[in-house]
Design a protein around this nucleic acid. Structure first.
Length: 199
DNA sequence: TTGTGTTTTATTGCCTCC
DNA sequence: GGAGGCAATAAAACACAA
């Protein structure tokens, strides 16, 4: 069924048959040269300008659909990374608590534990936003600022172990970003959040 | 039937390329 | 400078819930 709908000022939607031919041509060539557009216009009983405009609009629709698809892919990846981050954050919190216990058991004096140790454990369990806020106050990652000098060797070693476990391929917890981030079609600005405050 | 949101056709203005 | 492309937008056509 391909009824042609007309309005009082003669604008009408193209028939199903016309749309089919235009779509077929578009699949073969999204920017046909003038001669092809003229031929198609003759064949379909349309003005060459109508065919040109149809291709223009079709390219616009196609582009926005492609952008929508890309957005969906990016959002899925972001959600995956976000939940992985959440898992790692909790893991980090547990490790820090465990570290504190080990230190207590080792009978360390109080002044060997950084003054802000409790704050750092608390921040480790908070949201990324709260953590970023904390970074600006140089609380969370002392290695990013002057306070880094206070990290003792035991904690450094422990954090190194934690780092190894995160990047090891057999942990199941590594950030699988290679294929995604290496794709030139994706903008890097999506991933430009940083964990250390700017110097 | 009507109000509202979406899709499709068409226009306008600006930009790039030859 | 003209042709053609694109982005933004207008407006007609359509879909559909209430």
């Amino acid at each position: 069924m391909s009824t042609i709908k007309r309005s009082k000022n003669n604008r009408r939607r193209f028939s199903d048959e016309q749309i089919r031919s235009l779509e077929t041509m578009f699949d073969a060539e999204s920017r046909p040269e003038l001669r092809l557009k003229m031929n198609l216009a003759n064949k379909l009983g349309l003005q060459p300008r109508q065919v040109a405009i149809w291709f223009q609009n079709k390219r616009a629709r196609s582009k926005s659909k492609h952008i929508e698809t890309e957005y969906g892919v990016l959002k899925t990846k972001f959600d995956e990374l976000s939940s992985q981050f959440d898992i790692l954050r909790k893991e980090n919190q547990a490790l820090l608590i465990q570290l504190q216990r080990l230190k207590s058991m080792a009978g360390q004096k109080d002044d060997e534990i950084p003054d802000d140790y409790e704050d750092r454990i608390k921040i480790a369990s908070e949201s990324p936003e709260a953590q970023r806020e904390a970074h600006s106050n140089e609380l969370f990652m002392p290695s990013c600022g002057d306070a880094g000098k206070r990290v003792d060797s035991m904690e450094t070693e422990f954090l190194n172990m934690a780092q190894d476990s995160l990047t090891s391929p057999d942990t199941g917890c590594s950030f699988d970003s290679c294929t995604f981030l290496d794709n030139p079609g994706y903008s890097s600005q999506w991933w430009d959040f940083k964990f250390c405050p700017p110097a």
